[in-house]
Design a protein around this nucleic acid. Structure first.
Lengths: 245, 245
DNA sequence: CGGCGAGTTGAAGAGCTTCAAGCCTGGTGG
DNA sequence: CCACCAGGCTTGAAGCTCTTCAACTCGCCG
């Protein structure tokens, strides 16, 4: 259920009592299913609901007129998107499903209850926003300053960490749902160079690629090479839930 | 006064009544002045207040261990930063003054009144956040997909537009407070290449550079070359205040 | 008046892109 | 049920954008 995915995520950011949990679990909304590759939000479209990812991966991206495309961020299970709808904004970027995707659509007025019913819930939603903005900033640093090798490693480490938070993949690897062309568009690289650099990372014994998965063979060394410092996740702020790892 | 700068900005996003305006104008806080080049927030620091820019320019940036630096965004008069403090976060990036800078420091509990006193004020603050996030996304697209020439033109057009909103510079140019090295760090380019590309833009008759200012000689052609589409400002959403231009 | 940082210019070289062409897999239709 | 096609992945080679290194000028602040 989508509400469980949301609750799991929110619980990461605040200690909820039973009332809070019930507000989340009784959130009004309709479930939808999108096929792999289908467009969920089109840039310019008027938004009418807040979406919560129940299962699957999606990408936010922006297209230029000449066909170039930049992936801004990846949306994973438990992620909430288009909170902008709360101020009645139009979408300034698009969202597409990269795997089959299940979502919960929540009307703005229903979602707003999460922000008014309880201080703890409000706090948790704020935290999610703070974290998402931090991901955007990190994307800027990565693409602006790092080499192809660093970008790829850093991005994969970030994805892995985020999937851990979403409770998917506690081991030293994860199911990688992005194709190399999509990865390239996320990192501002050509698909060819992305491919070569990925293979180089594998040859260097830093990771292993299989059909649809990535396994880190030496996560610490990779993190050092890429200067991956997860403090931007602000995990300490919510009591190191990941310390169980 | 800093409160006037804030009020001017907020008024852009919502129709405030006299009560709303008074809440803003009576906002508690202490004014501070920073020297050119001084660090206002250091990454890792615990935040204790929301800051409002009264005058001057600042940059948000993130430094890597080896000295590389990425500028994330520019802060202009009327901008509010570190709203994160409302959820007690630590700074995950730094802020420095690029000109002499005057700010208003507002304690979180005082700032929170803006979010509770009035629905219109809450809406306006949300809008500012939505817009700031849009700037981050645009920065990702620019640095990820565009050439040096496009990046520089696009960034300058964005700055110009933002200064118009801040009520500084209604003409076809603006006072440019960023040095070329800072510009380079914002655009993920080397200072040398930034310099050459700037000069090339000038030679092509697209802009004119003077001591501390940029003047667009052919803004429309520049916007076309750079695919500058200001819809991410969401200006239409708050009734085209810029239509006077 | 000395020095630091911004701006500028030249030349060499690296990283990444583009073009081209191959293989493999999964999905689709006859 | 097999043939075909589209898209992902891979590899080679050429070339361009941007970086790096080096050096010099200028204006500003101490």
């Amino acid at each position: 259920m989508a509400r469980e995915a949301l609750l799991r995520r929110i619980s990461f950011f605040a200690d909820l009592d039973d009332d809070d949990k019930n507000v989340v679990l009784q959130l009004m909304g309709s479930e939808r299913r999108f096929a792999r590759g289908s467009e969920i939000i089109h840039a310019g479209q008027v938004l009418d609901s807040v979406l919560v990812v129940k299962s699957g991966w999606a990408i936010r991206y922006k297209s230029l007129e000449d066909g170039r495309r930049q992936v801004l961020n990846v949306l994973l299970p438990g992620d909430v998107f288009d909170l902008q709808v709360l101020v009645a904004a139009e979408a300034d970027h698009s969202v597409s499903a990269v795997t089959e995707l299940e979502t919960l659509s929540v009307k703005p007025e229903d979602f707003r209850r999460l922000l008014t019913e309880s201080g703890r819930l409000t706090l948790a939603i704020w935290w999610m926003q703070v974290q998402e903005e931090a991901f955007l900033r990190e994307q800027i640093v990565r693409n602006g300053q790092q080499t192809a090798r660093e970008r790829i490693g850093h991005f994969l480490l970030e994805l892995h960490r985020r999937l851990q938070i979403a409770d998917e993949g506690a081991y030293d690897g994860f199911r990688m749902a992005l194709t190399q062309p999509v990865l390239a568009d996320a990192l501002g690289l050509s698909p060819i160079h992305t491919n070569r650099t990925l293979r180089q990372l594998e040859r260097d014994g830093l990771l292993k690629r299989e059909k649809d998965s990535i396994t880190f063979k030496d996560p610490d060394r990779l993190a050092e090479i890429c200067q991956f410092d997860p403090s931007y996740f602000h995990l300490d702020a919510f009591r190191m839930r990941l310390s169980r790892e």
